[in-house]
Simulated scan of single mutants.
Amino acid sequence: MPMTFQVQFQNPYQKLSVKELLEDKLLIPRKIRYFLRTKKHVLINNQPINWQSSVEHGDDVTLIFDDDDYPAKTILFGDKQLVQPVYEDEHFIIVNKPEGMKTHANQPNELALLNHVSAYAGQTCYVVHRLDKETSGLVLFAKNPFILPILNRMLEKKAIKRYYWALVDGKTLPKTITYKDKIGRHRHDRRKRIVDNKHGQTAITHLKRLKTYPKNQLVECQLDTGRTHQIRVHLSYNEHPIIGDPLYHPHPKGRLMLHAYKLTLTHPMTGQQLSFQAKSDSFEQKLNTQA
Rank of each mutant, 00 (worst) to 15 (best):
K102D: 10
R130P: 11
N197F: 12
V219E: 11
A166D: 05
V127R: 11
D189V: 07
V233F: 12
E220Q: 13
L131C: 12
Y126F: 09
R185A: 04
K198W: 13
P98T: 00
D181G: 13
K208E: 15
L114Q: 03
R130A: 11
R191T: 04
F92V: 14
G184V: 03
L235G: 12
T135F: 03
Q107W: 15
T176V: 13
F146E: 02
R209N: 09
L218C: 07
T228D: 00
K180I: 15
C125M: 05
K143P: 04
Q222S: 06
D169E: 15
V195C: 05
L131Q: 10
I93W: 04
R227C: 02
Y164L: 03
H199R: 13
G170Y: 05
A119K: 01
V117R: 01
T172G: 02
R191K: 06
T178V: 11
R227P: 02
L218E: 08
K171Y: 08
C125D: 10
V95N: 05
D189M: 08
V139N: 04
P98F: 00
Y213A: 04
V195H: 05
A112G: 07
R153D: 09
H234A: 14
M101T: 06
K171Q: 14
Q107T: 15
H129A: 06
K208R: 15
H186F: 01
G100Q: 01
Y164G: 02
